[in-house]
Design a protein around this nucleic acid. Structure first.
Lengths: 219, 219
DNA sequence: TTAATTTTTTAGATTTGTCTAAATTTTATT
DNA sequence: AATAAAATTTAGACAAATCTAAAAAATTAA
């Protein structure tokens, strides 16, 4: 079955809200989509008849198994395009969201699978969010950006925001690579640089740009 | 000004028809877009109020200067995406059109200019059609696919449908490169292979796949 | 040059997704 | 538990893009 862009946007928004909330409400969804509660009610009815939603009126709602499957397909497309934009087209990680919102509605399954292969099956997008594979499976949790890691909590470097040679060169120079355990010692608000420490090395400072390109998992 | 997908599809279709025809008629356009004449009339009125069209009722129509500018922007996007699909994602040149029809409506100007740079500013798409640059300029005529070149008419190789190493390897092996003058001597309908001749060399046969990856200009 | 045919436009309806305003249901408060 | 407040749904309207059927204009043919 095929869905309109409006339907897809609703499905995706419900998916994201129910990740955080469990059950989603009409007003919540209206706020998320910058629309009115009445419009949401109309669309909920439609999605319910298409069996994408478990919904009884006045009750709140969540996606059905089928609805989640559709949502994961959209999330996959969104995150793969974001990765493409940053990795191949040199967009900044903070400017890709709006473009990916459009690209995620392109319908060709073949396109997205070929894009996935071209990008070498990335597991996380440039914001650290996991990318579902072609059967909808993905890593359980979002990676934390190193810049958001609280002070003095050891964490393992698990992913980089880009494969650019410039980044890889800098990482090698600083002895940073996958699996290394880091701890944030200080944060400098002037330029958002951070002081980090690697086991059995004295602390050193890395820039905001570098910290934002590193993702970690608390241990 | 921004345009809906429907409007963009009309603008592009009018552009293509007027390339061939000069003046475009309502029925022609309806046939091109698989729609009804009444729907076309409605859209023509709208495009006229937006000053994209020179149109008086019952008279036929063409794009205004502004309309042509919009059309060239859409054509640029379509052909760059086709090139991307073939060159980077390994689509066949004959299966990219439908996907590019969707991708051409993505609105970001930055996206398309970065894509152009990533692809190294290609001048022709995989079908031999010229790609407008970011200010709308493009080569005057379409390249002819070598497979469509009539017998015994000398022509110059001006473009290849892909930059893949596999193709380049084969071209080097056969002494084919930009600027070489070729002539088609025979066409074999069984496998669509063709016998070609290069100046001061004896004729040899090339496959359908290779012939379709070569574009020529009659001399 | 009048009549027949074709093309084009108008009129009115339909679908999708949205809105406002009013009505209904649920939840919170006294 | 009764009532006030908040959330949700219904009713009715609107814009975009399409359609069918009928009317009007242009073209072709007798």
């Amino acid at each position: 079955m095929k869905f309109s862009i409006a339907e897809e946007n609703y499905i995706k928004a419900i998916y994201h809200l129910q990740q955080a909330d469990g059950n989603v409400t009409t007003n919540e969804l209206a706020a998320e989509l910058n629309t009115k509660a009445a419009s949401v009610t109309d669309m909920l009815k439609k999605l319910k008849t298409k069996k994408l939603l478990n919904y009884e009126k006045y009750q709140g709602f969540r996606l059905s198994a089928e609805g989640r499957k559709i949502a994961l397909g959209i999330v996959r497309k969104h995150r793969l395009w974001e990765y493409f934009l940053v990795e191949k087209l040199q967009f900044g990680w903070d400017e890709v969201h709006a473009v990916a919102e459009e690209l995620e509605h392109i319908t060709s399954k073949k396109l997205i699978d070929k894009l996935d292969a071209f990008l070498d099956y990335p597991k996380f997008d440039p914001h650290g969010d996991p990318i579902p594979d072609s059967s909808g499976r993905m890593a359980a949790q979002k990676h934390i950006n190193l810049i958001d890691l609280p002070l003095n909590e050891p964490a393992e470097i698990v992913s980089v925001g880009s494969q650019s040679t410039e980044l890889l060169e800098l990482l090698r120079h600083k002895n940073l690579s996958m699996g290394v355990i880091v701890e944030v010692k200080r944060k400098f608000s002037f330029d958002h640089s951070i002081e980090i420490k690697i086991k059995s090395q004295s602390p050193f400072i890395i820039s905001q740009q570098l910290a934002q390109a590193l993702f970690v998992k608390k241990i």
